[in-house]
Design a protein around this nucleic acid. Structure first.
Lengths: 218, 218
DNA sequence: CTTGACATAGAACGCCTGTTCGCTTATCAT
DNA sequence: ATGATAAGCGAACAGGCGTTCTATGTCAAG
């Protein structure tokens, strides 16, 4: 949690650091000394100055001398456009229909898009999102309204959580997939650990995509 | 490259834009009016002010009025820190312990952070994340390893999904909370629609935070 | 107890900075 | 040419801002 550098920080110094961090996140611009004073609850500007010097010595921030707002955190969580992926919501997944897959030619619709941090999903290739409709995915611990972020792939590894359309039952489902050794059956394991896995004929199971991430807004 | 808005830009305005861009890249902080004046070769501060107004009208930058260095580019290909929120993972939530809440003074640790698109969680204030340990939150449709993004609030509205610590049972749980009319009981409704709600004495329920979002990496 | 290193407070100094305002210069249709 | 309109200039104002200085307090080591 804490590294060797932060361990020696006094409590007001930590307040200052976290205030700067919050302030930058909100305003795009570092705070002034007096804003730090108020925001971090420091009693005087000279104390802020005093603590900032210590923090600079500890390499936790850089200062541009005599510049207003010249306080820059050393480890800002710098974010570039590459860190966000816009994933199109291409449709709904319901138990009775195959899960829709993205039309590559379709325009990315801003209205029907989930923004996801890249760190959650990795590469943006082949990503699309489905909105879950109804309670039919409950054994995958997924409820009505949840967003499932999928990746279009031909292959799934054992243990991957995937969207599968069962042609014989005419329903789609989200399960962990394991190929049996004989290659003829798939083991489908609900995400819900209280439920038992079951088996289907591999010929009746179409794998439609791989679940990368599940998001539930509240 | 050029859109309808930038086509009408005068040449000094373009100089100003590109100077701001260069300056921010170099200093991490936007320039002042006078720095723009020198750096972009504008003859007076009032002219800078004049051009900045035009650029603001053209939606090419945002200004924080009367704030030093309150000039922020709205450049489309650049995503500002506003679009991603770094949420600290402050601990684990298990059924037998109160859910940890963030120490507001604690440093945001880069290692234990979830990056979440702001569109999922709104304002960054008071956000923290918990990693769910074990299957005890299964009736909230939340499994071992899931990340719950919470907001610290004093109040929850009826129907909010919240982390509640039940002092009489010594366990914490994630449920939808409804206050009964008499104000003495809380109705706690599992997220799983197949399960029945139950009631607790309001005095034995400590609301610890509000669930903003649930994320399951796969 | 003394000392000295550190922490704190408050005020003051002086430059920094965004804004405004009066004035001058360019542009251009009449 | 001319007068209207817009663009440009520079100074000045008022408050913002970083820095520094002095006085006071705390506390552990000598």
């Amino acid at each position: 949690m804490s590294n060797s550098a932060t361990e020696h920080l006094t409590e007001p110094q930590q307040r200052i650091l976290s205030f700067i961090s919050r302030y930058v996140a909100e305003h795009d611009v570092p705070p002034t000394i007096r804003e730090i004073q108020k925001g971090a609850g420091i009693s005087s500007t000279s104390m802020v100055s005093y603590h900032l010097k210590a923090l600079e010595r500890a390499q936790l921030l850089n200062r541009y001398e005599r510049r207003s707002r010249g306080v820059v955190l050393t480890h800002p969580h710098r974010v570039s456009a590459h860190d966000i992926v816009n994933v199109p919501i291409v449709g709904r997944i319901v138990a009775s229909e195959p899960a829709p897959t993205p039309d590559p030619d379709a325009l990315a619709d801003v209205e029907n898009t989930v923004q996801v941090a890249r760190s959650l999903v990795g590469n943006a290739d082949g990503l699309y999102a489905l909105e879950v409709q109804g309670d039919s995915m409950i054994d995958a611990l997924i409820n009505d309204g949840d967003i499932v972020i999928m990746r279009r792939t031909d292959e799934v590894k054992n243990g991957d959580l995937a969207a599968i359309f069962l042609t014989d039952r005419n329903e789609s489902t989200l399960k962990r997939v394991y190929r049996e050794k004989d290659g003829k059956r798939l083991k489908l394991k609900p995400e819900n650990p209280t439920m038992k896995p079951f088996y289907v004929d591999a010929r009746h199971a179409m794998i439609q995509g791989k679940v990368m991430c599940v998001i539930r807004k509240t």
